[in-house]
Amino acid sequence: MADGMGIPARQPAVPRLRRSRGRDPLGLRRALSDRLLPALVAAMALLAALALAGSRGAAELTARWEGGAAAAMTVQLPANAGAARLARGLAALEAMPEVTRAQPMDQARMAALLRPWLGEAPAMALPVVIELQLAGLPVAPEALARRIAAAVPGASVESHGVWVARLVALARSLQAVALAALALVAGIAAAVVAVAVRAGIAARREAIAILHDLGATDADIAGRFAQRAGWLVAAGAAAGTLLAVPVLAGFADLAAPLLGGQPAESMLDWPWTSLPWEALAPLPLLAAGLGWLTAQVTVRRWLRRLP
């Protein structure tokens, strides 16, 4: 620039400036406050983490119940049923498509199971019990029980799977509700970011117009808002997720007996490692992406009114 402008010859030594705000020409550090938006997002992230973990927990319970008790049934034949009748029954059961395995329960094992209630009663005639392993959770367990009873005359079917199926349906409903809550939280978080960005635009309308007149592109202006919003949302989401961790560990400890475990004696023994870390860890990143995208869309839409 020096040549021909009557400007003194270029002096390479530029006076040392204070910490420059030049990289934030829109003043977004003040226009998009680092307090309110992260606090609101933290609350949203806490709810999202709870919903996410709830969904995962419900899915785990569903899988466990589906693959365990619900997929097993027992068929009782009278104590006087002979070997031939047992063989016919087994053949009829194994021929059913829902049954993967039909096996008579060992009399000694049954006696051992009943001993706590009946004591030593060697003279008592015990029924013949066939354990069934089903291919999966029956859609209509009562109808299956009726078909088994028809296929094996005189047999009675223990259909505890009905209750398990209802529990599984309940768990699936909870899972769906949790996912819906997660989507709702994401929507509210996006709305919060949009409102904050609009307030920032209103506060920096003049600065935006100046940048626009200087030749800044929409991508440049929107990018500045999006970067700021993304950082704030990431910080808030990280805080909210961290807050959720001990809550989730406490819930996991309470649920331990349902999954065959034991409740811990102290917080240190809570099942920290069993938390769905693979789902929780990306939450701040996903939230930041949502905030970035929301800010981009909000600012670009506003900028369209400029020539």
């Binding site: 420059s20 030049g22 600065a207 100046i210 030749g215 440049d220």
Partner: peptide
């Protein structure tokens, strides 16, 4: 003038170059 009030004189003048 339409200078950005929160930027220093230097940063106001440097702004078009940063935009570019």
């Amino acid at each position: 003038f339409r200078l950005l009030p929160h930027l220093s004189v230097f940063d106001n003048v440097a702004l078009p170059m940063r935009v570019a």
